[in-house]
Write a protein that binds this DNA or RNA. Structure first.
Lengths: 335, 335
DNA sequence: CTGTTAGCGCCTTCAC
DNA sequence: GTGAAGGCGCTAACAG
């Protein structure tokens, strides 16, 4: 491996001068600068960022921790995060928790040992508080994405889950639906709680009461547990519409309904949170609350970088990004 | 920051002994081992992987370079790569080239300065040869994914583009289509060339001739240039079917067709390469050649790690993963 | 404008 | 079983 000493020797200067040329610091005569540049090119020299990190005590690496790289919401978010990071000269260490606390913890350890400069952290749920506290203990700045964690003070970029949920359910109520099921995420995820709140509010505002036997709690990431859906369908008064709390759950719900010979929206209307990215553009089908995923990543990363580089230590910021209801073919008026 | 010296001092030993405990090397008495472990926990010590990388001359970081993080094929691939990397204790540095050579080059520089132990490299196209040569020059092992690069000797994991394309086009021919357009990727991408070859072979094997005015070359990543489609539709004898060379192009094609008031498959049949992941599972619509994306990532990463850790320097390996044709609603017999 | 010294946190080598 | 010395590649601080 070739080092600044190799360059220095060949250029007849000291390593320090080479370092200065690399970092454009200090005053260097144009002549020696050129000479050094030339030697660096001839020798295909590339600075060793590890060595540099060691002395500077910063790595120029940020970590992006998301919960499901298979979910278009998070991939679009990742795209936003990447753009912002690249623009500011940061590298991205990738981590995917799979909505799994243990995996998240593993990755936090990895993040800690890597001494990243900061973490863009989409938590799995409230239990992530322990992992976030771990980061705090080691003074690693982070920004929390998508889900608010009780007891954690930090910059955070959120969607408006309650409002989005309320609008979706009001849409269903407006179509005449009265028995609306909620297939929700786990109760220890803030978005799931808020979506439930929005769901309730929509009922109450319309003078309807909430029937908790119509509410099921699963995992945002997949839908292996079909018993919840079975229970709903076997109710004396089965639902005529289903609100799936996110896009992945909606996929599972619709597939399961079809397997049971039920058609959407003829037999049941279905709505959900989050869109499906380019892949969903072929046959846009689901009525849903679309969140600006790219903005989540971009703004979150910008906040993080400001935190890291900014002089002023300001208050924690909380950005709430609105969602937009898009009405499509998965909902229809109750017959 | 707390270091092995802090631990050593508090435990009444030398730093070296602490290092030995961390790495489970050498013989240490159980008593001191326990004492040191205790101190490490009390002080929340986490080894500094940068310092370690510097002396060991290896980082335990691999880079995953893909061309489109928005494409479900690559996200699923990334998931496979992540699993394999995590299992082997490697961290993943993320890079997304956007099918853009310049961005790819930027990321290669980043990769080089990070001194990653290896790169899982999905190239943008033939021009990536320069970037790969760059890695070779610096002795960074890599495995090439999805697209073969002329002149580059390396382990490579590919799909069977020619075969998949042939089957898709034969399917269309079997349905009675005779004027089949190909909306292809750029000609300097091996998969695009092979998909063209498969397209041609299907014609020839059926005794049909290829009409090159039915073939357009775009960019795999998106479909901003609708003039190609316009040209096809304005032909004296317009096509009755379209083979889009990948999933993203298919999305663009279908959207554009609909904007022009044309229905799939009533007015034109459409087929493509690569499936749409979970998002596409709601309304599986397109007849396509599905590739085992997860396997691309998993196997590619395994090859890479073997290369890095394996003693034996074996020949270059070339894995070709078959694709599976899935017939769905986007194709129908010519009326 | 350029060089010297010291040290970032860790591990290899050689002693004891 | 354990420790001391030296160095991985780089830069901050101080000299000149």
């Amino acid at each position: 491996m070739i080092t600044i000493y190799d360059i220095a020797e060949k250029a007849g200067v000291s390593a320090m001068t080479v370092s200065r040329v690399i970092n454009n610091t200090g005053r260097i005569s144009e002549a020696t600068r050129k000479r050094i540049r030339k030697v660096m090119e001839d020798l295909h020299y590339i600075p060793n960022s590890m060595a540099r990190s060691l002395v500077l005590q910063k790595t120029k690496i940020l970590s992006l921790l998301i919960t499901d790289i298979t979910n278009p919401f998070y991939t679009t978010l990742a795209r936003g995060a990447e753009d912002a990071a690249k623009r500011a000269g940061y590298r991205l260490l990738f981590a995917n928790s799979d909505e799994d606390y243990a995996k998240e913890k593993d990755y936090v350890d990895m993040i800690l040992s890597t001494r990243v400069d900061g973490v863009l952290f989409a938590p799995t749920g409230d239990q992530s508080a322990r992992n976030l506290a771990q980061l705090q203990k080691h003074n690693i700045p982070f920004v929390v994405l998508d889900r608010e964690i009780p007891g954690i003070e930090a910059d955070v970029v959120l969607g408006d889950s309650k409002e989005g949920a309320r609008k979706l359910v009001e849409h269903l109520i407006g179509l005449g639906h009265r028995r609306i099921a909620l297939i929700n995420g786990s109760q220890d995820v803030s978005t799931a709680r808020l979506r439930y709140t929005g769901y309730s509010e929509a009922h109450l505002l319309s003078g309807l009461s909430v029937n908790d036997s119509l509410v099921a709690h699963l995992n945002y990431r997949d839908f292996h547990d079909e018993s919840a859906l079975d229970a709903l369908l076997n109710l004396e008064d089965p639902p005529t519409a289903i609100f799936a709390a996110n896009n992945m759950l909606a996929v599972g719900v619709i597939q399961s309904l079809r397997q049971r010979g039920l058609q959407v929206p003829d037999d049941l209307s279905v709505v959900c949170f989050d869109d499906f990215g380019p892949a969903g553009a072929i046959n846009p089908f689901l009525t849903l609350a679309s969140q600006p995923a790219y903005q989540f990543g971009l703004l979150g990363m910008q906040l993080l970088i400001e935190r890291i580089e900014g002089e002023a230590v300001h208050e924690n910021r909380k950005i709430i990004l609105p969602s937009e209801m898009i009405i499509r073919a998965s909902t229809q008026a109750l017959k």
